[in-house]
């Protein structure tokens, strides 16, 4: 059992599918940082990201027997956390149907004061991302920061690859404009 961390991932996945919690623990150790990062990037809030990461990992354990291809585990796990993070975003503003892909910008979690304080590019990017409608934000984050393909993102956000492409395009246009002062 102590050698679990040295085992190939597909072996760990199959063992975990059989109910081997040591194997699952090794998988959690390998993937928890990425899972947390996806949640944090999407939600922008550490406490919410932690809850979402925890929910994703526990859901992964419960649904693991349904996973047919053990090699697909990382992408499957990323989809799970992406979907949960998006749900959390939607739940945050029940009065605002986040499904609606408004292209106008909103200030969310980063008001003008935050922007004024944004002293470096990364801070500016963070602020600009916070101003994006959630569907655009998550598509952009998953594409540019996590390197997922359009098809995978479409599955997470429950839309078509073409719609994902459109959202990323609009997100990028907004971000390029928001960062113009740094040109």
């Amino acid at each position: 059992m102590h050698t679990d961390t040295a085992l190939p991932e597909s072996v760990l996945v199959e063992r975990a599918q059989d109910g081997d919690d040591h194997a699952f623990e090794a998988l959690v150790r390998r993937h928890q940082d990425t899972v947390y990062r996806i949640a944090l990037r999407t939600l922008g809030d550490a406490a919410e990201a932690r809850d979402t990461a925890q929910e994703a990992l526990i859901t992964a354990w419960r649904r693991l027997p349904d996973l047919r291809d053990p090699q697909a585990f990382p992408a499957w796990l990323h989809r799970m956390v992406g979907r949960l993070a998006l749900n959390a975003l939607r739940a945050r503003r029940p009065e605002d149907p986040a499904e609606e892909d408004h292209s106008e910008l909103r200030e969310r979690g980063a008001g003008p004061v935050d922007r004024a304080l944004a002293t470096d590019l990364h801070e500016a990017l963070r602020a600009a991302l916070a101003g994006l409608p959630p569907p655009q934000r998550i598509c952009w984050v998953l594409r540019e920061m996590e390197g997922l393909g359009y098809e995978e993102i479409a599955e997470i956000v429950d839309t078509t690859p073409t719609a994902v492409r459109g959202r990323i395009h609009r997100a990028r246009t907004h971000l390029v404009e928001a960062l113009e002062p740094w040109r």
């Binding site: 590019l121 990017l125 920061m145 740094w182």
Partner: peptide, 9 residues
């Protein structure tokens, strides 16, 4: 700027 910001992020 976006690429630099992305790199920093």
């Amino acid at each position: 700027p976006l690429l630099s910001a992305l790199g920093a992020a």
